[in-house]
Amino acid sequence: MTIGLSFLLGLLAGSVSYFMLGLWWPLAVLLGLFAWLAFGLLDVKMDSTFTLLGGMLLVFCVSLSGMVLRANDQLSGLQYVDTQDVDGTEFRYPVPPLGQARYGEKIYKASGCVACHTQQVTHESVALDVKAMAGEKNLAAVQEAASRFYKLTGRKASGGAALGLPAGEWETIVTGANAADASKARNFLAAAGASVDVQVRFRGEDLMHNDLQNPEGRNWGRRRSVAQDYLFAEPPMLGSVRIGPDLANIGARYNRDMLMSVLLDPKTLKKDSKMPQHGFLFEQAEKDEQRQPTREAEALVDYLLSLKSANYPLPEAPVDQPFTSSMPKPATAPAEAADTAKPDEAGK
């Protein structure tokens, strides 16, 4: 019996030292084992409320500090960052809700839109594309590095790479690779003296549709959502169920008239919509007159139009990055690519 409790206390000590104190993990494991022994000797009994209370308080503190306070340390300091619009205009992000949008957020909250709509764009995987450019001098070495990469990973050369990598042109070596493959390709090619560039693409059903690279995309955002997006949300209404579409980027997809018509009768836009009508947001002065949106409806639509969060690139969540030419320094070629040193010298 005591072996169980003392084990848990040891586990606790180990976890605390690893997660909260940031100890090197073998050290944390050792510490946990030591604590297991120590607590085991103490022979803790479960018979007094005092034991229970003490253990519970300890667990409560670990839970609160390990999950909530630690996250608070990381996220409470978020500030504006610079990003750019689709047309390249730089601006500070995120933009606080302007005009009536703040009032609209209250309407959104009061109407419980969060019961059916999420506001979080997710991604499922990351895919990497590797491009390379060889010069006249090191063309042979780069070609050899590429073919070695293809042989090793079983991937097939395509495009310019299949034609033997013409010198002086950026050619795609591999698309949609996982991190390990991309890392191999990068190391081989860089060691052979080629210019290499790696592009990161987020893939997932929520992201932009692309016939080849993201065929299941639903165009709900250009990137995944991150904490930065919700800096001004009171509170962020992330939602947990998608009876309707995700709204994190609705402002970039819909215009005012469409949103109004959806609120009045969702079936006008989508026949099998499950969304209830929101007649209480519209008023009718006289019987035959068309229903006019109330101030609440206008504010709600203002708020929805302000939701463009998954649209702008952030350092932690890039929108598909364009390839940029870059020459790796020979010194940065990792040591694990030591076997490629010969082609490197040959290239020079």
């Binding site: 995987s125 990351v126 990497l128 996982n178 870059s326 940065t332």
Partner: peptide, 14 residues
């Protein structure tokens, strides 16, 4: 996924 940390090391230094 592990990728994200690897990505950072993969990005060629400017």
């Amino acid at each position: 996924h592990k990728d994200a940390t690897v990505v950072a090391s993969l990005k060629v230094q400017k």
